[in-house]
Nucleic acid binder design. Structure first.
Lengths: 171, 171
DNA sequence: TATTGTTATACTCTATAACTATA
DNA sequence: TATAGTTATAGAGTATAACAATA
């Protein structure tokens, strides 16, 4: 069965790389590639940087609270925290209010590494937006944030950082 | 709604989700997820849509010419073209100027499916940018394109595909 | 010698399910 | 009953290397 959508030949088709969705996807391929390369000298993956950044914003989060906003499955988070604990960047403390959970806490080495990593990430981002002037770059970032917000991407992670709503994963 | 992140100023550390790179990554996770869901009823993956779109713009491209702009390895392209040939969306013809290569050509069913797929993709994109007014949406897409261009993402595909002036691709 | 398409193999990543200890 | 963390296993996805035909 063919579903007629009212889109017929002759209405004109949009070039692939004028589709916002395709632009975002292509850009992310590049961003991932570059972030991995930028952070490799520090021995971490962008996901480790994500964990460190969330802990800088609010220390002592549980592994589940860390995995939800990063779109990382909780099984994978185990390994990420393992890596970072092994390197002395974080440790696992008993969670103050939930004895099932661990409070992942930043250690001084983690704070230091985060600062170095963020410098590298910011340096890359400056290059990424290097074709825009300052006002355009601000506008771009602001619009990006609004699109993300509109897509409901932050509901879990903001001030509360605790609205657990099932497992949201990429397919 | 304004995004409020309770972080402490002073250490020069930027909240994770104000980093453009992180916004792009998070947004792409969402976009991929949604595109896959949107196109699933048609039995295709976003990558198939990418191939169909490139062929709409310029029919008879070789598999290598298709794989480069889509950031897909040529080994993977074999399978994608296999899928689409099996469904009667495209076929493989002898390439007119390179006897090693195949010219992948759109069949009528492929043209039809592309129209349906593009309608679904555009519908999703309208929702994605639904929080912006028309001028903001245009600005966002335009800035996205400039960032992509600045990153060197379509040096291979612009001249041949967008202009479609009959010149061969320098891939 | 390099490139196109193809296949096979090995490797990585992710998903699923199970288990425990809590809630 | 549901959830946090953990582990093991299976499956999907990806990279590497090789090959034949052609440039």
């Amino acid at each position: 069965m063919i579903i007629q959508i009212g889109y017929h030949e002759g209405m004109g088709s949009q070039p692939l790389f004028e589709h916002p969705a395709c632009l975002i996807t292509q850009l992310d391929v590049h961003v991932q590639e570059q972030l991995i390369a930028q952070l490799a000298p520090l021995g971490i993956h962008p996901r480790h940087f994500g964990v460190l950044s969330l802990l800088i914003e609010q220390d002592g989060l549980s592994q589940h609270q860390l995995s939800a906003p990063l779109s990382v499955h909780r099984n994978v988070m185990v390994g990420l925290v393992d890596d970072m604990e092994r390197r002395g960047l974080v440790d696992r403390q008993p969670h103050p209010t939930d004895r099932r959970a661990h409070a992942v806490r930043l250690l001084p080495a983690g704070r230091q590494l985060h600062a170095e990593a963020e410098a590298l990430v910011s340096e890359f981002e400056a290059k990424l937006l290097g074709g825009l002037d300052a006002a355009e770059a601000r506008a771009f970032t602001s619009l990006l944030m609004r699109v993300c917000e509109n897509a409901g991407l932050y509901h879990d992670i903001h001030p509360g950082l605790r609205a657990s709503s099932g497992e949201s994963l990429s397919v």
